[in-house]
């Protein structure tokens, strides 16, 4: 809606999009980084170097954030029973059984 109907992408627009999405991604938003990469897949043959730079670091950031979060989730799931009351306190749902 914020973009016109017959929108055409040129290099400047692409750089702008990639940079903005890249900045947004720093707010604990790896999903936005992934969107950034996914959006430019159809244009991959005509990408600027600058855009590629942003996309590369978006992908790296996405993988890094994902690794951190996944790692934390793994630690939590493994150790939840050991932690006892603390584990229950930080749990939003407590599975039974």
């Amino acid at each position: 809606m914020l973009i016109p109907e017959d929108d055409k992408l040129d290099d400047e627009k692409m750089i702008n999009i990639a940079r903005k999405l890249w900045f947004i991604g720093f707010f604990f938003l790896p999903w936005v980084w992934l969107i950034n990469v996914l959006y430019f897949i159809p244009y991959r043959n005509s990408l600027n170097d600058k855009v590629k730079w942003y996309l590369k670091f978006s992908l790296i950031g996405f993988l890094g954030y994902s690794t951190i979060f996944m790692g934390w989730m793994g630690i939590y799931l493994v150790n939840r029973n050991k932690w006892g009351a603390f584990g229950d306190d930080i749990s939003i749902t407590i599975p039974f059984g």
Partner: peptide, 28 residues
């Protein structure tokens, strides 16, 4: 399934902000 608050908040935050980006701006 059990889940902690941190992961939950991050997932929801990503989902909603990604939704804003996808609905209102350039996105696949």
């Amino acid at each position: 399934l059990g889940l902690d608050y941190v992961t939950f908040v991050i997932v929801v935050w990503n989902f909603s902000v990604g939704g804003i980006v996808c609905i209102f701006w350039y996105s696949p």
